[in-house]
Design a protein around this nucleic acid. Sequence first.
DNA 1: CTAGGGTTAG
Length: 654
Amino acid sequence: MVSLCKKIITPIARASITISTKPTIFTGHEVPFVPFSQLQKIKQLESQIISTLHDCTNLSQIKQTHAYIIRRCLHQSSYVIAKLVRMLSKTSVSMLPYGVSIFSQVRHPNAFLYTALIRGYTIDGMLEESVFVYNSMRRDGLTPVSFTFTALLSASASEKKVDLGRQLHCECVKLGGFEVDYFVDNVLINLYLKCGWLSSGRKVFDESPERDLISWTSLIDAYAKAGRMDSASEMFDRAPAKDMVLWTAMVTGFVQNAKPREALEYFEKMQISGVQTDEITLVGVINACAQLGAAKYANWVRDIAEKSSFSIAKDSHLGSAMIDMYSKCGCLEEAYEIFKNMHKKDVYSYSSMIIGLAYHGRANSAIELFEEMTKTDVGPNAVTFLGVLTACSHAGLVEEGKKFFEIMESTYGVTPCADHYNCMVDLFGRTGRLDEALDVITSMPMEPTAGIWGALLGSCRTFANPDIAEIAARHLFELEPVNIGNYILLADVYVKAERWEDSLKVRKLISEKGLRKTPAFSCVEGEKGVIHEFYAGNMTHPRSTEINEVLENLIERLKLNGYEPDLSSVLYDVNEEEKRRILMKHSEKLALAYALLIAEDGSAIRIVKNLRICVDCHLFMCGVSEISRRKIIVRDNMRFHHFEDGACSCRNFW
DNA sequence: CTAGGGTTAG
């Protein structure tokens, strides 16, 4: 290999462009002087080779054509070689060095050939190398073409190098030796949006004379990713045309902003307007269903996938999303079925499944699956270990958890991040080892997050430890001054420790700060895929009278079994009778009663709650699962609870 | 002939 290619392959320290002072305008391609008649023949041959190259689909075909090029003495033609290099960079990553070596044999590469190489590097995400080639090209006195800039700009966008991109764009405009087409504008819009410069991107978008559908989509997607769904919807309405990708961006946008109902609404509109859907659209829809936790919806999506003959078994995105959806809908068997049938299991499918098992309290299965995974060539990543550690903490497997935490870095090279420390705090905290949980926090190498202090505070409530709770609360009130949940937890700890006055003080603090409670609600699937939402204390459901009767009846029967309402779950300063009334109208109880009203024989009841299930409701569900001889599956914001024959799968580790 | 939408955790 010639020295130039070595130079190009070696990464340079910093990507920045150097501007050569006097660019020579260079057009045409390098061929030795030949009489006109022969030139005609060469041009013919060139076009013939290019069309052959165009039809190449694999490396051996390309190599054959390369041999032909050499036989016909056209290996110095930048025109032909540019196409060859381009084809190589398109073929696969490992072919780039081959392209580089061919490039370096051309004595006078022209702008097209340089650009082909630049594109080769940008496709492989080697931005610094491509900038290096760009600089070499300028040193050779060549003028870039429009496509040189679009390649470099789009690479800067995906690497989020906004400064480099702007520098390139400035040079592109300044140079102007060619027509700067609207396409450069579009790539610039994309650069700004990808780098989070929304207003700059919008400005170029507004001023650009030719905005096409792709730019509309980029803009709308950028708004969605920034959590600005109102702006996204507004632009969506204004978009002159709407294709599959644009619709999908909206569906996915709503999902990313935790608005699954709107996502499904848009999906429906999309279908009505006759736009096709593909796997990517469906992944969005699947995630919406996962958020809803509605089992009937899960089956509905699966039907769509199967009818559209999308391959759940082959597409990792689709399969993993579906595993996640089924486990979040409480259907672990279906999730496992999908997992089992996947042809090639990757880190996503394994992790989704491990996390699913963890949330359903199946710690041993999760660990087994992890061990099975380590025997394959699929390496675990940070998320996989989150799943494994979650499994341990939700099952009280302290020693196992400690072991996994140790080996994740030493054996698998995965450096623990704050979330992993969060799991460790949980692991110790849930089993009452609060001092050790606190030790984890004080010894961790990064700043503890609010979630970590929150986990500690939650454990302090379970084990009535006001001393450590106060430490956690102090940090939490600083980190999240308006999160009412933290104040409620602390007040709760004081109640458990029978320090009524302190509890009262915290509640005063809540009202002084004017914090309002997050309304608790629970959902249950009714007939025809209608999801019924129940808010705590709200009796506006059309069948409220019946719901009330069911609840009264259940309580009577449970009392015979020794159930006594756990009044400590009610923090308000009211009399016992009122506390009983409040408890009775907890959202998950209302949802349960409604579910019992409409449930078919023998079917399991699935409830999704936005907050953590309270102690009394947990007790209540246990009892109802026994007397009604029905499985009750509750998903709260922490995990799943499977109630069966009077016991819960969480074994009180929640 | 270049640019837009996707998977696991919290």
